[in-house]
């Protein structure tokens, strides 16, 4: 028994020593290699994708493309970008006009003779919790009848998407049109191909920004509410796979009526955004349908004043 143990120990030690030698031999080689003169790499030629968390297969493709591109002489792109920025800068600032007083309709009541102000009969106030006579169950939610033109909202989203597209174009070297298109395809692969089947693939920053911007447009608050600067509302939206909202829960409800009003407006914002054209939730269903597990519950933190009110 003891002999077997000695043999086992000896074999194990031998294996460890072999591994150590193997490792040291590599290190020595690396050290020798490190004495080779340093090659300077132009960082401008390194392409940085604007979409984060690209899957490895896309990264590999990008790397290969870069090798090919190295032969092409780069143009002076940074200067071009600067010019573009100048062009987009607004020339004149528009000052907000003060609100003009609107005339109220004339009171219909005729002017009465001298009368004390408290002559009116004080109504008996009864607060009751009536239940509606009709069917007490709320009507199941259906798609709203699209009677109102929604062009304005969709234009807003389109312009937002267009601006995101512009940023993409500007950030990318435009030396080769073909290359730009190919890179676009890589990004597309990153979203639709690379993430396919991956439950935990997080959304990109630009995708999150798009959702946040849409929600901000759907959220309406009273800027003059007392203490609004301290009212941050947290809600959790439960989203169906088709992008419809199953439920919205306010996570940090307070008894303060003003906070309740802001919290309810935040909850309403989710439902309003569900029903708008180009709903961010529908967008998720369309573009990120395969990673549903990642957005079936959305935690939203509404901060009314942090980003300013519009």
């Amino acid at each position: 028994m003891q002999i077997r143990a000695y043999i086992f120990s000896a074999v194990l030690h031998t294996v460890i020593i072999v591994f150590l030698l193997w490792d040291f031999s590599f290190s020595m080689k690396d050290y020798e290699k490190s004495n080779v003169p340093v090659i300077m790499i132009d960082l401008k030629k390194v392409q940085i994708g604007e979409l984060t968390n690209l899957p490895p297969n896309v990264k590999k493709q990008t790397h290969q493309k870069q090798k090919k591109e190295a032969k092409v002489e780069p143009k002076k792109e940074p200067q071009k970008q600067k010019t573009t920025v100048k062009k987009t800068t607004p020339k004149a600032e528009t000052k907000p006009e003060p609100a003009k007083p609107k005339e109220q309709p004339k009171p219909k009541e005729s002017v009465k003779a001298v009368e004390p102000p408290k002559k009116q009969e004080k109504p008996v106030k009864k607060e009751e919790k009536q239940t509606p006579k009709a069917d007490p169950k709320p009507t199941p939610k259906t798609e709203p009848v699209k009677e109102q033109p929604k062009k304005k909202k969709s234009d807003g989203l389109k312009s937002l998407l267009a601006s995101v597209e512009d940023i993409k174009k500007n950030a990318r070297p435009s030396t080769k049109v073909q290359d730009t298109q190919e890179t676009g395809q890589e990004v597309q692969d990153g979203i639709e191909g690379g993430t396919e089947g991956s439950l935990m693939q997080p959304l990109t920053i630009s995708e999150k920004d798009l959702i946040a911007n849409k929600l901000r447009g759907c959220w309406n608050v009273d800027a003059g509410l007392n203490g609004i600067e301290n009212m941050i509302v947290e809600v959790r939206a439960y989203v169906n796979k088709d992008g419809s909202i199953r439920d919205v829960k306010i996570l940090n409800m307070r008894s303060d009526p003003a906070f309740r009003s802001v919290a309810e407006s935040a909850r309403r914002a989710i439902y309003i955004c569900e029903n708008i054209e180009d709903s961010p939730f529908k967008l998720l269903a369309e573009k990120r349908g395969d990673s549903y597990q990642g957005w079936k519950e959305i935690f939203v933190r509404f901060n009314p004043l942090d980003g300013g009110v519009y």
Binding site: L215, R216, N220, G294, W295, I298, F299, L305, Y310
Partner: peptide, 19 residues
Amino acid sequence: VTAHAELKIDVSGAQTEPT
């Protein structure tokens, strides 16, 4: 942990239109 993974969104700012 995977089952409770959720998307987190920060919304800063709002509209102040009459309701």
